[in-house]
Simulated assay, not measured.
Amino acid sequence: MSPRPDVSDARKKQIIDAAINVFNRAGFKDARMEDIVKEAGISKGLVYWYYKSKEELIIAITDHLFGEEFNRMEQADDPSIPPRECLTRYFDLYVIDLAGMLAFSPIIYELYALAFRNATVKKVMRGYLERFIRSVEPIIQRGIDAGEFNTVNARQASIAFGSQIEGTLLLWAYAPDSMVVEKQLQEGISMLIKSLIQEETEDAK
């Protein structure tokens, strides 16, 4: 007899997808575990087997939303290509993923607000900030070391890129009709990359 397939990952995804739909509609505060059970279409006991509370589900959703995105973006880091091209590829992947992420904007911004009040969520969100910095900083540092980029603090420059993204998305959330968010992000990122480029001196010409 062949072994039974492991369905735990599929069940977790089923529950997370249901929780995302419920949280998107009702928000974290008003959503109930019973609503998630109904949305998932499985038994209450099975939902609680995997996730004991809304907080556990919120952490799982954070990993689901940000973890997969970072996994794809980090694949763009290729030390064999020029740092400028590598950095451009990295953020191009972010913009490509953005369309899918915008559908979850209510949840994402509620996560940011929740991080001010919930130490566990704050720790998780801080972890993803550090992961972003760790993935961008080496690319910038390679550009500095190769003389392609100006001599800057690579960590601070990485944070500047993150601030560009978060600031643009926050403005879009308030006034979505004021911009095409993908184009605005591409323009802002392009300006930051250009600001890193080492200008050719007269002696080098």
Rank of each mutant, 00 (worst) to 15 (best):
K52Q: 14
R32L: 10
K29G: 00
A18Y: 10
E56M: 09
I20G: 00
E56W: 06
A60N: 08
I42H: 07
G45S: 12
L57Y: 02
I16P: 08
D35R: 03
G67R: 11
Y51G: 02
L65G: 06
I59R: 10
N24V: 00
K52T: 09
S43N: 13
D17Y: 06
S43T: 15
I36H: 05
D63P: 00
W49I: 09
N71I: 07
G41H: 10
K44P: 07
R32P: 00
L57A: 06
A40N: 10
I36R: 05
A40V: 13
V22L: 04
D35I: 03
A19D: 04
F70Y: 15
I36Y: 01
E55C: 01
E39I: 08
I36M: 04
S53T: 13
R25V: 03
I16V: 15
A18S: 13
I58A: 14
F70L: 14
A19E: 03
W49T: 09
V22N: 02
V22M: 05
E34H: 06
E34R: 13
A40W: 12
V22C: 03
I16A: 01
A19Q: 06
G45L: 08
A26R: 14
E55I: 12
K44D: 14
L65R: 02
N24E: 12
F23R: 09
F70V: 07
M33Y: 01
